[in-house]
Design a protein around this nucleic acid. Sequence first.
DNA 1: GTCCCCCCGAATGTCGACAATCTTGTTGAC
DNA 2: GTCAACAAGATTGTCGACATTCGGGGGGAC
Lengths: 212, 212
Amino acid sequence: MSNADTITDTLRHDILKGRFAPGGRLLEVSLAEQYSVGRAAIRSALVELTSEGLVEREANRGATVRRISIREAIQITEARSVLESLIAAQAARHATAADHADLQQIIADMEAATNDAQGHAYSELNAVLHRRLREMSGHEVASQLVANLRDRAAHHQYRLALMPGRPSESLGEHRAIVQAVVARDEDAAAQAMHDHLSSVIEVLSRWGDAQG
Amino acid sequence: MSNADTITDTLRHDILKGRFAPGGRLLEVSLAEQYSVGRAAIRSALVELTSEGLVEREANRGATVRRISIREAIQITEARSVLESLIAAQAARHATAADHADLQQIIADMEAATNDAQGHAYSELNAVLHRRLREMSGHEVASQLVANLRDRAAHHQYRLALMPGRPSESLGEHRAIVQAVVARDEDAAAQAMHDHLSSVIEVLSRWGDAQG
DNA sequence: GTCCCCCCGAATGTCGACAATCTTGTTGAC
DNA sequence: GTCAACAAGATTGTCGACATTCGGGGGGAC
């Protein structure tokens, strides 16, 4: 297992980074060769990633990178919406002064990335901000669920950040979240997070309608 | 895998039914013998149940049934609270007339179980009611998360249903949920579900305080 | 030309044996 | 008597070979 869970992390990382495209086949022997490990370690990793929703396995037919439909991406974001609202409220309750400074620094970096039209950098900061809020919340159960949900929809999330005008819209929503957390206003933090993810859901919905 | 995922279901079921106590060791060779399968199938099942949060594995030391502290049970219920509120709202939106009749029948059965002081039967009906609501919601993502969260806290949940007076208190809350769903009132359904789980959290909190 | 059957190749699924690792009990020095 | 190093046992981790299963392609009947 010492090897196997390292492989799980590596494979998860590579899937999220797009090294294996959605729908792409994940052959055990091929992966074992690429990562220089035995088939057992790969099998173990595939089982784990399957129950995380990142991989799909069919009996005797092999594993593929799971495709996430727009409809499922919306459901994932709806689930995130209620869980991250809970997290935002808890973060507002537990954040220290140092945490407040952290959050405000991230917002400042986001503003810079927005002005320079750096979609990739903004997407990265987005992930960092949400992760820091999870850490501050002290709510391990919700945090783990949200981390997994974000992974599952990572592909769509990334495409979103590249839409022209989207970062600047998103920035305002994130600013509102941080503002509420700094003010230690739990209800406002939950509401701001809810508003933010409702906006994401709306963009996904328009996207889905446009594609039929 | 044809065998392995069957074993996963069987082992999950046996853990939830209390055949293996929390903290109890899960030896691969022993389990392989008990279920008449190879070690590979058991290993695969343990990996999957670990990422479901039911099993804990330590490298080179083996697997045990995961212990859920009161604190974690409360967090699990908090997460359930927001997710099941979402589900209740969606169920209110999508339920058909036949679904309404189903729900009301379950409530009637619950009343009977309460009058006869059958804690086990009530606990079972409780699970059935929540499962039917998930099915009606059409929200697969939230449903799957909630099903897993319920499994993780099943032990505490079951002890709750055996507390004297608890079923009758719980019954009223469930009646309110069904009433709102039948009325197709999404907000009321979400609110009723939230109230119900807040009540569960409160009982768990008192329990935790009493135990130190 | 089309349909059906059979065979073959490519993967996964399974099993057994061995290696690595951790825990525990023992032995010896001081 | 206490502590540390060591050895033994138990358990997981890893590897290779073989069995099983599924899909596709080829060949023959009509």
